[in-house]
């Protein structure tokens, strides 16, 4: 009897504190010729618990850059806060907004500086390049990044990305003889694909749903503005009047 007692006392039961959790949700971005679309759902969850039906994952950084963050929400919010702080310092030093390719490199150094205690966040940066083209940059949690035309990340990445491969890159499709596939899709097509992607992900993934926020960044004097005017639920967020323009489209998703 004394033996068993001392045995149980000598090994106090302990567990390490886990500083991470996963908060679900999915984000996605698609670049057009002179625009960029960045979207995310608004559900925040932990395990089977829906914490809130409205917690934004997509943030306007400048009039030409929008950042979507997905993974551990506390890290995500802190990361956006720090990126914004660095962009403000840049503004004070240079009297202009940081170009998007510079923001992308900034994000990579900020992520890599936490290489051994990472921000558990997948970032997708969308916006307009200095040459007026639409851009999407995607990152892993420790800063690997590349510029591409489209990217999905988060809980339903595996559902959405192959769909986008097919519909954006026309993978596994051959054009009719004598024709070719467009390199960039028009804004209306891109918006339809984004909405379809999220309704599909909502249907088959429990961590996706509740609401959808689609940010649209238009290059200076982009003709795509015409198609955006009559989109349901659109509102403008632009802060200046002679440059790129930022819009957000808000939609409902199923709540079950």
């Amino acid at each position: 009897m004394p033996d068993t007692l001392s045995l149980s006392q000598s090994q106090p039961q302990q567990h390490a504190f886990n500083p991470y959790t996963e908060n679900g949700g999915t984000i996605l971005a698609i670049a057009g010729a002179d625009f960029s679309v960045i979207a995310g759902d608004t559900r925040q969850s932990e395990g089977y618990n829906i914490q809130t039906r409205y917690a934004p994952k997509v943030f306007r950084l400048t009039d030409k850059a929008v950042l979507a963050v997905n993974g551990f929400a506390a890290d995500g919010n802190m990361f956006v806060k720090k990126v914004r702080q660095r962009l403000e310092w840049y503004r004070h030093a240079h009297a202009k907004d940081m170009p998007i390719r510079a923001i992308a490199r900034l994000i990579q150094t900020m992520l890599y500086s936490r290489r051994f205690f990472p921000y558990y966040v997948y970032n997708i940066l969308g916006g307009i390049e200095e040459d007026g083209t639409g851009a999407v940059y995607s990152f892993d949690p420790v800063g690997s990044y590349e510029r591409e035309a489209c990217r999905a990340a988060g809980a339903a990445q595996s559902l959405v990305q192959p769909f986008l491969d097919n519909q954006i890159y026309f993978k596994n499709q051959t054009p009719a003889p004598g024709t070719s596939f467009p390199r960039h899709l028009p804004l209306s097509t891109v918006l339809s694909l984004v909405i379809d992607s999220f309704t599909s992900a909502t249907e088959r993934h429990i961590e996706v749903g509740d609401g959808l926020e689609i940010y649209v960044v238009l290059a200076k004097n982009s003709p795509s503005i015409q198609g955006l005017r009559d989109v349901r639920g659109v509102s403008e967020l632009t802060s200046t009047d002679d440059g790129e323009r930022v819009f957000v489209v808000r939609r409902e998703l199923k709540k079950d």
């Binding site: 559902l159 959405v160 769909f163 097919n166 519909q167």
Partner: peptide
């Protein structure tokens, strides 16, 4: 992946 594409 099949679920995602098929649903679309």
């Amino acid at each position: 992946k099949l679920f995602g594409v098929a649903e679309g």
